[in-house]
Write a protein that binds this DNA or RNA. Structure first.
Lengths: 339, 339
DNA sequence: GACACATGGGAGAGCGCTCTCCGAAACCTT
DNA sequence: AAGGTTTCGGAGAGCGCTCTCCCATGTGTC
């Protein structure tokens, strides 16, 4: 694309000033006499000038863009990416913070191993100033690769050991405990849970936190089935749970989508929710209040967390100090009708 | 970020050759003696060299990235973006084509007016070599802005008049006709339709095509209610339709999600589908076959279309000719259980 | 053995911008 | 009025790379 538009030089000639002056006006720095400033702006408008970001980056070592990386090691993940409201919430939290600072948000998806490699290479070459990473699996090597490449990085969720970078996270264990205590207090003595893949640390904390809290309360063994965070998989897990033991009177699912799936199965079987079985979800996404019945769920302030994550990165970028800030958020139980 | 890593110069010194030679090896061009090539690669590995994309772009006028722009003029659209399987399918179609060519896909979202302006500025400055745009509203000014800025652009859906650029599209009118004919052939004589916002050209074609086909077949007035492409809005539209006229015996919805919503409403009212009312969706997304009952729907080969759109852009980029290619796809009816 | 010709690798210009100097002019201050 | 100080704008180096020249070797031909 020999799309060579006008350069600073052209604008300078047009305005009858030097390159440096045009640069000053364009970047709004220092004191340039008002009439000269006006002349320059007019010249910019007349020529249709747009600064060449490559040339600018070459000297400033900044691109003005920040990458929001969605990564997963499992196959076919765009399907999940664009069906789980979770990601939309992350994006919703990130965008305003970046926009306010006039930083361009750039979404990058790492859906496979080669994609991950290509993505890291892109960032190593200076495709963006920093990365906000939402990894979905514990084994995901991406955060380590990025941090290893020296790229300012902040994660949604704690990094695996050995990877030093900023992060935000929810106290999932506490969230699971809140759910357990709510169910217990409501007289439920035979709770089960629908967990998520073992590879998601988040999921493990929710599972362990739930069983640990129930054990502490004096409950017996808690039946566990696993889903894949999708509504469909939640339905299936509920089916297996029910087949194993129709005596259970409560179900805690690791996210709202799976909780919905569980409700759907129960509805199909004519089992009353919450009359016969109480259901608690996790996240408090839109999926929670549009469910039938509306879900009681553990609220994860995703947007807030994403905004905090973004601010952490911007601070890192501003100060240049690679201090790895972090922030842990507390969950809250949102009681609706399902439990 | 004074993140200055090793430069070509450093690698050259390390390998005992000139800058030019290192550049040749890194870019895999021309004939470099095998032993020298090896020495250079070793030096690259030792120094951890990564080419500076800004410097490279400055001379090549290429970034090696292509933007996939998701744009909408309505408010709060990330919610829809990350809940409608449609976008995931677009991404699924685009990624492989780009990956194969080692072009970095970069997702950009234009969720508001300022965001759109910032995005255009970013691309004008050379943030990417070209743009694949998925506009959701007819009034969306983005395609025009991009084309006006001289950026190679290909749209999903025909451009509004006055905007000259490549595009791919589905023959929505034909799709709606197929649906109408299917329902008519099945003996449905009182069909209604759930359309989408007037601002979506796609939606208008589906609505007009449906009513036109039915008129041609000899049907009377077709009741119309509008949704917003979401399952929830489809449910509500069905409710209004039913309230207006419980005599209708078929419903054609402008996408699968709304068709699902319609089914849900009918199920709530105890109306048999397809026994009493037949339902036809549009898109054949995952939402179609996971619905209860599985939806009869008009298949839109989104992935294929997205791949074609990408190839159109790459060709444009390769040849430099701003010939505005385009491709129209034919819909197919997928008959399942709902009609 | 003299010439033409391919082949491998270096020198150096220059992509478009920022930013540090510096000099000229205007303004105080005493 | 002489010196000091501030304000404004220009000159020019240089960011890290690519790519065109060009020269120094090989290799083939008669």
């Amino acid at each position: 694309m020999g799309n060579r538009g006008p350069t600073l030089e052209d604008v300078a000639r047009e305005a009858g000033v030097s390159r440096a002056t045009v640069s000053r006006v364009v970047n709004g720095v220092r004191n340039v006499a008002p009439e000269i400033q006006e002349a320059v702006l007019a010249a910019v408008a007349r020529t249709g000038y747009a600064p060449n970001q490559a040339a600018r980056s070459l000297v400033t070592r900044r691109t003005g863009a920040v990458a929001l990386v969605l990564s997963a090691t499992g196959g076919s993940f765009t399907a999940r990416l664009f069906s789980d409201p979770f990601f939309g919430r992350v994006v919703d939290g990130v965008l305003p913070v970046l926009r306010e600072r006039a930083v361009q948000p750039v979404l990058l998806v790492a859906e496979s191993e080669p994609a991950r490699a290509q993505l890291v290479e892109y960032l190593r070459r200076g495709g963006a100033d920093g990365a906000l990473v939402v990894p979905l699996d514990e084994e995901d090597p991406l955060p380590g690769m990025l941090v290893g490449a020296g790229l300012p990085t902040v994660l949604f969720g704690r990094p695996r050991s050995g990877v030093r970078c900023g992060w935000v996270d929810l106290d999932n264990t506490a969230g699971a405990r809140i759910a357990a205590e709510h169910l217990w207090a409501a007289g439920r003595r035979r709770p089960a849970t629908i967990a998520a893949p073992v590879t998601a640390p988040t999921a493990r904390e929710r599972l362990d936190g739930f069983t640990a809290a129930l054990t502490a309360l004096g409950a017996g063994e808690v039946p566990v089935e696993r889903g894949r965070f999708t509504e469909e998989s939640g339905r299936d897990a509920m089916a297996r749970l029910w087949e194993r033991d129709p005596g259970i009177d409560a179900v805690f699912a690791a996210n709202d989508l799976m909780a919905r799936g569980a409700c759907r199965y129960l509805a199909e079987r004519g089992v009353a929710v919450p009359g016969r079985v109480a259901v608690v979800g996790f996240d408090d996404s839109v999926a929670a209040h549009t469910a039938a019945p509306p879900l009681t769920t553990v609220r994860q302030p995703v947007e807030e967390m994403a905004a905090a994550m973004t601010r952490l990165l911007l601070t890192h970028l501003d100060t240049g100090t690679p201090e790895t800030g972090s922030k842990l958020f507390e969950p809250v139980l949102v009681v609706r009708e399902s439990a």
